[in-house]
Simulated assay, not measured.
Amino acid sequence: MITGLALGSGLLALASLPGPVTSSSVPLAAIFPPWVSGDEAVARSLATGARILRQGAVPFVVVLAPETSARPVGALLMLHLAGLAGCIISSEAETSSL
């Protein structure tokens, strides 16, 4: 029962994420596996020609403005920023945390 509950809640969390984007004019969050370092995630994103807007709250999330529809090598997901506000570090949040 516990396994079923854990699996069900994980599937619900995945279903609530914003969907993928096909337009290249919208800023996206590139989600890499947790073992990819922040520097490596940024380097892989830059290799596609994307403009890096910022890093996420965790090092394996990179917010970028893609120039093409190319996905960075190793990125698991490319998502709209809508609904992902917790992954973004804003200057106000950084100031208030100091």
Rank of each mutant, 00 (worst) to 15 (best):
A6S: 14
S45K: 05
I88Y: 12
F60M: 07
L79S: 13
L81D: 06
P27V: 12
L81C: 12
L7S: 12
F32W: 02
V62S: 01
S37M: 02
P59C: 13
L77P: 02
L17M: 12
P72L: 05
A29Y: 03
S69P: 00
V73P: 02
T3F: 08
E92K: 14
A93I: 09
A13V: 06
L64F: 15
A93W: 04
L77Q: 13
T48E: 00
V42C: 14
L81N: 08
S16W: 10
A47H: 13
L64M: 15
S69E: 09
I31S: 02
E40Q: 15
V62M: 01
L14Y: 01
H80Y: 04
G86T: 04
F32V: 01
L17F: 07
T95Y: 05
L79N: 04
L46S: 15
L53M: 14
R54C: 15
P34C: 05
S37C: 05
A41V: 04
V21C: 06
P72T: 11
L12S: 06
G56I: 00
G83N: 08
R44V: 04
I2T: 10
R71T: 15
S25K: 07
E67V: 13
R44P: 08
E40P: 05
A30P: 02
G83W: 05
G74K: 03
V58Q: 15
L81K: 03
E94V: 11
L64W: 14
R54N: 14
I89R: 11
